[in-house]
Design a protein around this nucleic acid. Structure first.
Ligand SMILES: [Zn+2]
Ligand SMILES: [Zn+2]
Ligand SMILES: [Zn+2]
Ligand SMILES: [Zn+2]
Lengths: 135, 135
DNA sequence: CCCGGGCATGAGAACCATTCTCACACGTCC
DNA sequence: GGACGTGTGAGAATGGTTCTCATGCCCGGG
């Protein structure tokens, strides 16, 4: 019972542009933000298309998404292996941190309480050295 | 350097009803959900007031809030000490889990990368034993 | 190389959770 | 009891995200 064949992703100028932009940015950016930057540099891409491209990238595991406190979604080009983020709440700079002991801890605690199909969500926020200095 | 005096919270039927409802529910509920339940049981409370009451409770540290994957805010009556949640993604049942080693880990990793004012956000999702059984 | 089926695109409308507005109600304090 | 000022609520406004649908264009087959 193998997974159904993936609908075959088509390569277009717009999707290429979105992925390329994400590649050269190093922090989490909102869809609206990306849309504005694409428009500025002349690569006109519809807002709806930006959302669709990002959704596809998330589904393919090429991009990570996280929700800000106000509920906006922010996207970032990320490595495909499981990891978490250390995010500067001022400039958006992000560091990927992997393999923390919480991986084992989460699985153990969940098992102790009889929970199955365990997932977890962990993000660390702070102010990076550069931002702390210039304040 | 003490904090400014809090504006003194007024005790009203509506705020009492919201807090009472949260007290007898054991999982995270959305504002819309709480509003609908209050209306059903006759305690008519305006939607805007539900939002305001929940916001006040969060500010007072009596209620925890978390964002669902679709961006809706969900609220739950919680203990005031720092802790995290083990949430059943099927029935919403929640277990509070405290003092994991991740507390120290988060602080250490952040420090190693020069980040200050560190906060973190951790939730564990799974399917509880009861829900797994009846499937 | 040329077609044609069908996914992709985009402008704008629709959606929907949340917040704002503002006139009125009512808790609090004297 | 009365004044003051915060709380309330119905509806409008906001704003991020998704949907609609007519048109565009990627891509495999011929
Ligand atoms: Zn920074
Ligand atoms: Zn992890
Ligand atoms: Zn359950
Ligand atoms: Zn913690």
């Amino acid at each position: 019972m193998s997974a159904a064949e993936v609908p075959a992703r088509r390569q277009t100028r717009q999707r290429t542009a979105v992925l390329a932009l994400l590649d050269e940015l190093d922090g989490f950016r909102t869809a609206q933000d990306l849309h504005a930057q694409l428009r500025e540099r002349g690569d006109g891409v519809g807002l709806a298309t930006v959302y669709r491209a990002l959704q596809a990238l998330v589904d393919d595991g090429l991009v990570d998404v996280l929700r800000s406190e106000v509920g906006e979604a922010a996207y970032r080009r990320c490595s495909p292996v499981h990891h978490h983020h250390l995010v500067c709440r001022s400039c958006g700079r992000t560091v990927e941190v992997a393999d923390p002991p919480v991986e084992r801890w989460a699985a153990r605690v969940a098992a102790e309480h009889g929970f199955a199909d365990v997932q977890h969500q962990l993000e660390v926020f702070g102010t990076c050295a550069a931002c702390a200095a210039q304040r």
